[in-house]
Design a protein around this nucleic acid. Structure first.
Length: 956
RNA sequence: GCCGGGAUGGCGGAAUGGCAGACGCAGCGGACUUAAAAUCCGCCGGAGCAAUCCAUGUGGGUUCGACUCCCUCUCCCGGCACCA
């Protein structure tokens, strides 16, 4: 018996050898082209679960492949080491965050080493060490000096559980990204980064190869929308401001403004509120401050608000517009004020209905449908017959009367005539949609009033109430119409269309541009853009982060710490209590300092920097991790950056990935680097879930890879990760298939280790073909990141080898050469096994320094192929034919097939389809006669399946 | 609600306009063994004795031909969620 494959021993042996030989040490200066393959470094949470491995193992396979393809590959690893969990461990268990973090790193480094990756550990980066965070602080000062870091009073997202503020990106559906607590608002003075300055640049993804999905998420997050800032006149005694500015994307609806809504936090609120409304408004403002974002922004929550008692003026039609406040308007977007057009905005519509505010339609519905309800007993005898005769679409209402639907202007015109003729005295009728007309039949005839302004709205309502007691409690005309189900779909729409009821613009179809131009000409507005994205809030009221390197001096104000004094070290001792204030605040020896400018007494900033800033530049540090003179050695960054291939989870789409892009653009503008995008190609691998949930310690569903490694070997685990699904897909962790991979690697071992006895060389050509075919398939699959099919191809290849070995049907030379190729193809996936077998064959150490095998396209193609023969698109025969077969020959052979002939008998071929190298399809003309089929195929081959099974029985 | 992605055997998946189910797991049968494990060989979507038919979430369409392209609907996953 030959030696058995024993992975743990082999793996340990080769890892030690590689380590000793510094096989994976990366040299900066090499003639080979560079390849920077980066994978997102882990947060130091304690240990790596199988989900982490799913990030790292396939990334390493790809990097190893690139290495064999002749690239000088930098594939570094490090630790994202600042963050809340470390401090929470300190609070809960009394371990110092530093100790906790470094212990975790020890363990994680051990696990990472067991992967057998090509990480060059000399380049390890740990963000919580002073030699790293010194430069994080240095970058902060650079941003400050360039006007990109500023201190501001802002309503912030406060997580009551973590006792810390969060950036907008770190709030997920109103909850803290880390602990899922509901976030509340607080007004605090904080440090922010001016990411909004780069909003437009961040929208430009030219030159980078990123998944469409991530680009869309970033675009949505940035949320650029073009519109207008429109000024409404304000004339309030004692108030200096003479206008209220609103932001709108729909200037074409400006004639439909019937109220104005300010955010509760809007600075004008306290100034303009009428004395008798002060109490109510104050209470509303107080309440909205108290609510969490979840409560306040919940779409389930009914829109509510309060009238301030004040008015402004719509300059376009000189209408007085009541000013309300409501918390569905956000102070932080646009101007914090909106012009409400209830006829064409869903929220405004709901709000207006709730508070009885008039609704004036100003845009025609694009479907052109107009409705009218002929109320019971309002029409004279014979009206219905007239409707019928005129061909109108109508339906009898349950309560009597008719629902009439009109489809064009001619119908409307005709209907109006008809209706006027039949309307009984002292009644009214209306047509809704466009035009919007009310017809009142009085003593003197019929009077028509259009619902085109606040005044006419009031007049219409007054008259209706006079006629119909049932509508007396309606506050607006639309509220009255809204009682009728039939009208509902006409009362509100948000589409673009022809303007109506809009003075000089009535009839205009390009309202947005027309109104914009007019407002600009008048000086009442300007075209502008708004962004959803807000500046990045980076202050954290916590200990375990890089201290913000700023000093407050009473005389000199805010002064950055001079570079020579960096890093501002975290004091070793601090009291860790969840107070909501930085533990540094009460550390006198940290806080008290001297002003670098005037030397006088001063205080240090006690907040620390958001950990996401550390990961904004770690990819630069890897280029020269021990460099002491600066954050990075410019020559090395020039050599290695940008990252060629960045892999990691999609959960960072609008956090890390957006921040890192911003940061890179910012330092490019400072002249520190000469590229604008850090990651040329991004690939998001899928997530491994467990029990239908993301793996996390807190959920208690983590799967530890260590046991699999100990039992089956790391090569098996690596290959299994590659095999389970396409990498971008991920999925539920299920180890039931891992035995298949283990068996396969054992088979490969036996294949290579056991002696081969050649009996003949019958299959040499076939083996050569299969070898080249496999090289091609494996290479292309790795390039396309289709690792699962790559492993499948390797399995198929080794299955063929097994068969040939058993048969002894290839020469010893062909066998050796193919096996050598198999090992090379296997090297990235199963590096230890490949190295061991390579060594046993006596080939030169190391297999990982060998070039990737090439394939010869001429040898890949077979000299014969299976020609599929179809009749009416259904496969009826398969013929093995020479590769040189011509179309004519193929047709002849296909037609000659006995299988096929039974389908052709008595039928005419109307079309012959030929796909070279693949198939022939005979299309038959429609069956004329039922007989004429051979008894063996009684079914009609015609595609018409009407008769189904019962028609198929033909007794012989 | 809006924006993405997805649905294929018992399971993971393969096939991106041309042989549906590669490769693997599980299962079944056999060989070896005193026996078991391991290993090896065979079978393995459904119906049918068979010829053959049915089958890629639903319903329609385009095409000689559709898992693949287009439209409708259902369900699942991810993101955003009053952004005016």
């Amino acid at each position: 018996m030959v030696e058995r494959y024993e992975p743990p021993a082999i793996e340990k042996k080769w890892q030690a050898r590689w380590d000793e030989d510094r096989l994976y040490q990366v040299r900066d200066e090499e003639p080979r082209p560079k390849w920077y393959a980066l994978t997102m470094f882990p947060y130091t949470s304690g240990d790596l679960h199988i989900g982490h491995w799913y990030n790292y193992a396939p990334a390493d396979v790809h990097a190893r492949y690139k290495r064999m393809r002749g690239f000088n590959v930098l594939h570094p690893m490090g630790f994202d080491a600042f963050g809340l969990p470390a401090e929470n461990a300190a609070i809960n268990r009394g371990v110092h965050p530093f100790t906790w973090t470094m212990q975790n790193i020890e363990n994680m480094r051990r696990q990472l080493k067991s992967i057998g990756a090509i990480y060059d550990w000399d380049r390890e980066v740990i963000t919580c060490l002073p030699d790293y965070y010194k430069w994080t602080q240095w970058f902060f000062i650079k941003l400050f000096e360039n006007g990109l870091a500023y201190r501001g009073l802002a309503p912030v997202n406060w997580c009551p559980r973590c006792q810390v503020v969060l950036a907008n990106e770190q709030v997920e559906s109103g909850r803290c990204w880390r602990c899922e607590s509901d976030v509340v608002r607080r007004e605090l003075e904080q440090w922010l980064f001016r990411i909004t300055k780069y909003a437009d640049e961040l929208l430009d993804f030219n030159g980078i190869d990123w998944p469409e999905r991530i680009k869309i998420m970033q675009r949505n997050w940035i949320g650029k929308s073009s519109g207008m800032e429109i000024s409404f006149g304000l004339d309030h005694p004692g108030v200096a401001e003479k206008e209220i500015k609103v932001f709108t994307t729909r200037p074409d609806t400006v004639f439909g403004v019937t109220f104005m809504v300010l955010a509760p936090e809007h600075p004008l609120v306290s100034k303009i509120t009428a004395p008798e409304k002060k109490k109510e408004v104050g209470a509303y403002v107080a309440r909205s401050q108290r609510l969490t974002d979840i409560e306040r922004l919940s779409t389930e929550k009914e829109k509510d608000g309060v009238f301030t008692g004040a008015y402004c003026v719509n300059r376009l039609n000189d209408t007085k517009v009541p000013i309300w406040i409501a918390d569905y308007v956000l102070q932080s977007y646009g101007t914090g004020a909106v012009m409400a057009v209830p006829a064409h905005d869903e929220r405004d519509f709901a709000f207006a209905l709730k508070y009885g505010i008039p609704i004036i339609p100003v845009i025609e519905p694009p479907d052109g449908i107009v409705k009218s309800f002929a109320f019971p007993d309002t029409m004279k005898e014979g009206f219905e017959e007239e409707l019928k005769m005129s061909g109108f679409e109508y339906k009898a209402a349950e309560i009597g009367g008719q629902f009439v639907t009109l489809h064009d202007e001619a119908q409307v015109k005709k209907y109006i005539q008809l209706m006027k003729a039949y309307l009984k005295p002292d009644n009214w009728n209306d047509i809704i949609g466009s035009p919007w007309l009310f017809f009142f039949s009085g003593k003197t005839g019929i009077e028509t009033i259009a619902l085109d302004s606040i005044e006419s709205e009031a007049e219409i309502l007054k008259r209706c109430k006079a006629i119909e007691p049932n509508v007396r409690n309606c506050r607006t005309a639309v509220e009255m119409l809204n009682n009728c189900e039939f009208y509902r779909d006409r009362l509100f729409h948000a589409e673009y269309g022809r303007m109506i009821h809009s003075g000089r613009f009535t009839g205009n179809r390009d309202g947005v541009n027309a109104v914009s131009a007019y407002l600009e000409e008048k000086g009442w507005g300007r075209r502008t853009v708004s962004y959803r994205i807000r500046d990045w809030l980076i202050s954290r009221q916590r200990y375990w982060g890089a201290p913000i390197p700023m000093i407050y001096c009473e005389k000199c104000g805010i002064v950055p710490v001079p570079e020579k004094d960096l890093p501002v070290l975290l004091p070793e001792t601090a009291e860790f209590r969840p107070t909501g204030e930085s533990p540094l605040k009460y550390n006198d020896s940290f806080v008290n300092t001297n002003c670098p400018k005037c030397g006088g007494p001063a205080r240090r900033e006690t907040d620390t920097i958001d950990g996401f800033m550390c990961s904004c530049w770690y990819f630069l540090r890897y280029a020269s991790p021990q460099y002491e003179k600066a954050a990075f050695d410019p020559a090395k960054v020039k050599r290695w950056l940008p990252v060629d291939f960045y892999t990691g989870g999609a959960e960072h789409a609008v956090m890390h990935l957006l921040y890192a892009r911003f940061f890179t653009k910012a330092i490019q503008d400072m002249g520190l680097v000469d590229f604008s995008e850090p990651f040329t190609r991004l690939f998001n691998q899928g997530i491994i879930i467990s029990g239908h949930q993301k793996m996390s310690k807190s959920r208690g569903n983590v799967v530890n890879p260590d046991e699999y490694v100990a039992e089956l070997g790391v090569d098996t685990v690596r290959a299994y990760m590659m095999f389970i699904a396409p990498w971008e897909q991920g999925g539920e962790w299920d180890d039931s298939g891992i035995s298949g991979i283990s068996r396969w690697l054992h088979r490969v071992w036996d294949l290579a280790v056991e002696n081969y006895h050649s009996l003949n060389n019958q299959e040499d050509q076939e083996l050569i073909r299969l070898t080249h075919q496999t090289v091609k398939k494996v290479t292309e699959d790795i390039e396309k990141i289709r690792f699962n099919t790559m492993v499948a191809a390797l399995m198929e290849f080794s299955n063929h080898l097994s068969r040939m070995k058993k048969a002894g049907s290839v020469s010893a030379v062909a066998w050796q050469s193919s096996l050598k190729t198999l090992l090379l193809l296997l090297a990235p996936t199963a590096p230890h096994l490949a190295e061991e077998l390579w060594h046993r064959y006596g080939y030169q150490y190391s297999i990982h320094n060998q070039p990737w095998p090439q394939w010869d396209e001429a040898l890949v193609t077979r000299d014969e192929f299976t020609l599929v023969v179809q009749v009416n698109g259904k496969v009826r025969d398969r013929l093995l034919v020479p590769a040189s077969t011509t179309e004519v020959q193929a047709m002849q052979m296909a037609a000659g097939s006995t299988q096929v002939q039974s389908y052709l008998a008595g039928r005419e071929i109307s079309k012959r389809i030929y796909v070279p190298g693949k198939l022939v399809n005979f299309v038959l003309s429609k069956p004329g006669v039922q007989e004429g089929h051979s008894p063996s195929s009684p079914h009609s081959p015609s595609p018409s399946q009407g008769e189904g099974d019962k028609g198929g029985e033909v007794k012989p």
